[in-house]
Design a binder for these strands. Structure first.
Lengths: 228, 228
DNA sequence: TCAATAGTGTCTGTCAGACAGTATGTG
DNA sequence: CACATACTGTCTGACAGACACTATTGA
């Protein structure tokens, strides 16, 4: 009755070069040697699921979710046959972090890099990880609508246009700068002003935007909806 | 590494007497003998998670989700110590069904009944099932906003006021009959008219409402939002 | 100077909610 | 008749999206 193994897998997402990307590791062991996969691994006997997700992420990539990041459970994948080694049930997580130092490979992985989510057709992911990534990306896109999670993708301090670039990258659309600015500033607790403006010398010219930090609000009322 | 057991637990909800209720079974075996708990049990070695949820529901209560019901994964609970028998990770599900025949007790359960969700303080649920029920109820309340799931709570054919009573029961609020009717009929594919009206002889008098069946639409654009 | 960007003002169409008014049923 | 319920009409305030306009910067 308990020859079932439980693993965690993490869809770690960030915005790089105005593109939504997820972290994949190249597998160094069987099965699927050399293929790209989500960071993850077996849950230890006395370890909570969230703790396991954070530990595996650190072990395989050197990334610590604690500083400014966000981690939440996505869903659980348990179809028989999804892992050739036997019955493996995987609890998937989604993690969001600001721009990062380059990930480090861990013991079980021979490489790690961020992949743009719209270039994943090339990656030939191991197991059912393509499906898990797709579900995770959709979760992220949906959550930007009615939560303030977008701020976990930017470093402080940030400007309203920085935040807009996050929405544009994640949703793959262009938003009206004026309407977006009004919307964010009209939501109490979304961002708090620092009193400063961006330093002189930014490329392209233009008025220097006001800088903000993350606010205390978590939910968004009213939501910022994706264009139809 | 795999002395972890995987179970499924099901929050089966229905609307009875204009009240949202969930099905609980009284445990007949240790641990927590005599306490109320969610129907559920161990996943079999070659069984998918969804299939396990349906099987356990039928075994413990005699209820088959197939006819007109809805089943979806809720989330996974895996804190160490949540089950005194050892490490047990539980994949929780939410199920919605129309009014039902009385549930039958199964082998592992000495009783089964529907509990109104606002009377669960009395029930002293086993394990962490109080938390799971709370999460499931919140999922249901949220999903009524932007999906057509409410129709899975009513028998066909049904009237717009029937559907409104579902929303009122689940959300615990009163809705404006006129605005609700306009909203539902203005959403293509939510309901399809049968051409009939409710039979003469309903209690309370009043104009006979038009009867409908479930429509093909799953999502709701725009959503029906809970009042603030 | 021109080009680019930040942010405000303003208008318009859509929609939610309040509520009046009409149609149709029971007692 | 009185009364209850179903449903339509209509108004108002909030908001999204389009877009003009001003302010501020680099080249």
């Amino acid at each position: 009755m308990d020859d079932v193994a439980v693993t965690v897998d993490v869809v770690l997402a960030t915005v790089l070069d105005d593109t939504l990307t997820v972290l994949l590791v190249q597998r160094g062991v069987e099965p699927f040697v050399g293929r790209w996969a989500l960071p993850g691994g077996f849950v230890l006997p006395d370890e909570g699921l969230d703790a396991a997700a954070m530990r595996e992420l650190t072990e395989e990539t050197g990334i610590d979710i604690e500083d400014g990041g966000h981690l939440e459970q996505l869903r659980t994948y348990g179809a028989p046959g999804r892992d050739p080694r036997g019955r493996v049930v995987s609890v998937a997580y989604v993690a969001l972090v600001p721009r990062l130092p380059a990930p480090v490979s861990g013991t079980d992985a021979s490489g790690a890099r961020f992949w743009p989510v719209d270039r994943l057709g090339r990656a030939r992911l191991a197991f059912d990880h393509a499906r898990i990534v797709a579900d995770g990306v959709e979760r992220i896109r949906a959550k930007l609508e009615y939560t303030t999670l977008a701020v976990t993708f930017v470093d402080e301090p940030f400007s309203i246009p920085d935040l807009r670039h996050v929405y544009e990258a994640v949703w793959g659309v262009m938003l009206d700068p004026g309407n977006f600015s009004r919307k964010v500033l009209g939501t109490p607790g979304f961002v708090v002003p620092t009193g400063n403006r961006a330093p002189i010398g930014a490329p392209g010219g233009g008025r220097r935007p006001v800088l903000y930090r993350r606010g205390p609000a978590a939910a968004l009322h009213p939501p910022i909806l994706r264009p139809a």
